[in-house]
Design a binder for these strands. Structure first.
Lengths: 169, 169
DNA sequence: CTAAACTACGTGCATATGCACCTATTACTG
DNA sequence: CAGTAATAGGTGCATATGCACGTAGTTTAG
């Protein structure tokens, strides 16, 4: 196998082929998804670092926070968080085993309503301190206004993508 | 097993306990991490939907793209993508089994240099068409300028967070 | 030159994420 | 009311993600 077959130095930054679509005349059409994923990885690491002491992952803290507002069914929570039902179901397990979250039957025999136990409330309250430090530290690194603008953009993106992929099938 | 015992009245949705949250006068100090993760989930789903036909996940396409520039070692690639080395190592496996990526020894006996095989190049070329449609569709949903601004912000965030968590230990 | 330090990578474990497919209830319909 | 559609969840499978810890090759201190 020729190791360098396809390599051939690709640094010749093309001088705009003048033939491309108008949209790309401006930007190189980079992958938004990959960028988002990458930034999310780094930012997540940032939070995890701070929240380590709390014994909660960022995702778990988020879950507790969502449930702290009111008991919710799996589907409702999944919709609210843009999470797959089955993912959410499994994400809840460690927290249930840990006794932070419990479930009760809903009006519907199929439904399971999840809610924070007393221990869960306490756990979240403690973790919130760490989360707060993480958030403040992040805003210090990124600049508070920058973060505020980013939040607006993220919210807007969510709104605009909502109808884009409602429920495929 | 029904754990409903302790629950009793699960439907007593408490009327918003007059929450004491006067702290954040300016903004509600929302979680940037959770928002990013949520948007990333939705955007990822958007891409996956389009790329389905290619047989590649967005993450795999990203990997192939990174490697298409030049063969790289695990660590180098991991650094470049803000990915944990071990995560990257495992993400490469399906692509290697699939024959899209292969490895060769580097100058250093410890190192493994990964590169696209001929099949990998082809696979990526094909997938790129789908990716392109996804990207264009996304930009149509979000507005191209919006996306451009978002990219700038994400890049800036990366830059500003770079020194924040170099290599913990 | 040898032992410690460093570097590149791997394994086991735990969680995160979503799809295809399956079961149990409930709602709807003729 | 039987039969079907719609709803709420679950399981198995595959990938994604990162940490703690372990191993082998490399560099460096003495």
């Amino acid at each position: 196998m020729k190791t360098t077959a396809t390599t051939g130095r690709g640094k010749t930054r093309r001088p705009a082929p003048a033939s491309a679509a108008p949209r790309e005349a401006k930007h190189p059409l980079a992958c938004t998804g990959a960028r988002l994923r990458r930034v999310t990885r780094r930012v997540t690491a940032f939070y995890e670092h701070h929240m380590r002491a709390s014994g909660l992952k960022l995702s778990q803290y988020s879950l507790l926070t969502q449930l702290s507002e009111e008991p919710q069914s799996l589907t409702a929570l999944a919709d609210r968080m843009d999470l797959d039902r089955t993912t959410l179901s499994r994400n809840l397990q460690p927290l249930m085993e840990q006794g932070a979250i419990a479930e009760s039957a809903g009006a519907d025999a199929r439904q399971r309503l999840f809610f924070l136990t007393r221990a869960g409330v306490k756990l979240r309250t403690e973790a919130r301190k760490q989360w707060r430090l993480a958030q403040l530290d992040l805003e210090q690194h990124l600049d508070p206004d920058f973060v505020a603008r980013l939040h607006e953009q993220l919210e807007l993106a969510l709104k605009r993508l909502k109808p884009a992929l409602p429920e495929d099938n």
